[in-house]
Amino acid sequence: TEEYEYTDEQQAREAAREWREKGYTVTIEEHNGRWRVKTG
């Protein structure tokens, strides 16, 4: 599992979409105004 943090929701969603296209399972969670994208 890798985790990436973004301050911008749009960036987080874009990144998540790219990971999904590569076949990863992706979770996005908002935490204190930051967006965490977890792949695994």
Rank of each mutant, 00 (worst) to 15 (best):
R17G: 05
E18V: 13
E18N: 11
D8A: 04
W35Y: 06
R13P: 00
G40T: 15
W35R: 00
A15C: 10
T1V: 14
Y6A: 02
T39E: 04
T7H: 10
R36H: 11
E29D: 07
H31F: 13
R20A: 12
E30G: 06
R13Y: 11
T27N: 06
E29L: 09
W19A: 05
R17K: 11
E18W: 14
Y24W: 08
I28V: 12
W19S: 02
T27M: 08
E18G: 09
E3C: 10
E30S: 08
E30C: 07
A15K: 11
E21R: 10
E21P: 01
Y4Q: 07
E5I: 13
G40E: 14
Q11I: 08
E5M: 10
R20H: 08
T39Q: 06
T7P: 13
E18F: 15
A15L: 06
I28G: 00
E2P: 09
Y24K: 04
E9T: 02
A16G: 05
A12Q: 00
G23A: 02
W35P: 00
E5P: 11
I28A: 02
E14H: 08
E3A: 10
E30T: 07
R36M: 13
N32Y: 06
E9H: 06
V26H: 01
W35Q: 00
E5Y: 15
K38D: 04
G40W: 15
I28T: 03
Q11H: 08
Y4M: 09
E3G: 09
K38T: 14
D8H: 06
Q11F: 06
E21M: 09
R13G: 04
A15Y: 04
E18A: 13
T25M: 11
A12E: 00
T39D: 03
G40D: 13
T7N: 13
H31D: 10
Q10Y: 12
G23L: 02
N32T: 04
A12T: 02
R13T: 07
E2N: 14
E18Y: 15
H31Q: 09
T7M: 13
V37A: 02
R13A: 08
V26S: 03
T7K: 09
K38S: 09
R17S: 08
T39L: 15
H31A: 09
T27A: 07
A12P: 00
E5W: 15
T1Q: 13
